[in-house]
């Protein structure tokens, strides 16, 4: 039996309207055969993780261009661990300095992407690192 589709939650936490990247990536993931639930703007860490639990998502992707990446990734990761989603991939993208990317990885966040990163590379990274559930 084939694996079920990789299911990805994409969300924009906080007060950040820059949704170009989130939408382009969402579309690329769908074209690549994944299932995407785009939660849209003004999400909280709580609303994002709640959706991930309800959807039994394999991947959570946060798009953050507001500078609040440390706060939001940290909080989402904590909630994932306390909700039994510790084995799911947390990734994302935005305007995120290299130094902060390293700190994020230390707290269990996967690779985060930025301006100029190739869509195909993002697709392949998620495919390789998403939790897979036999269908």
């Amino acid at each position: 039996m084939a694996d079920r589709k990789i299911k990805v939650i994409i969300a924009k936490p906080g007060l950040d309207g820059h949704d170009r990247g989130a939408k382009v990536v969402a579309r690329a993931l769908v074209e690549a055969g994944m299932e995407v639930v785009y939660l849209g703007l003004q999400q909280t860490p709580e609303s994002i993780v709640r959706a991930a639990v309800e959807e039994d998502a394999d991947v959570i992707g946060l798009s953050i261009l507001s500078g609040a990446h440390m706060t939001n990734f940290r909080r989402v990761r904590e909630l994932m661990l306390s909700s039994g989603l510790g084995d799911r991939l947390l990734t994302g993208g935005g305007i995120i300095p290299t130094k902060d990317q390293e700190k994020l990885q230390e707290m269990g966040v996967g690779k985060v992407f930025g301006p100029g990163d190739d869509l195909q590379e993002i697709v392949e990274y998620i495919r390789a690192n998403a939790r897979r559930v036999p269908g």
Binding site: G14, L15, D16, Q42, S66, G67, A68, N72
Partner: peptide, 22 residues
């Protein structure tokens, strides 16, 4: 910054981590 652009005060819950950033 983003909270100001959305008409929110710096102590609003959604503003966490965004104050003065952009």
């Amino acid at each position: 910054d983003n909270p100001t652009l959305y008409g929110r005060d710096s102590d609003h819950a959604l503003a966490a981590g965004e104050v003065g950033k952009t």
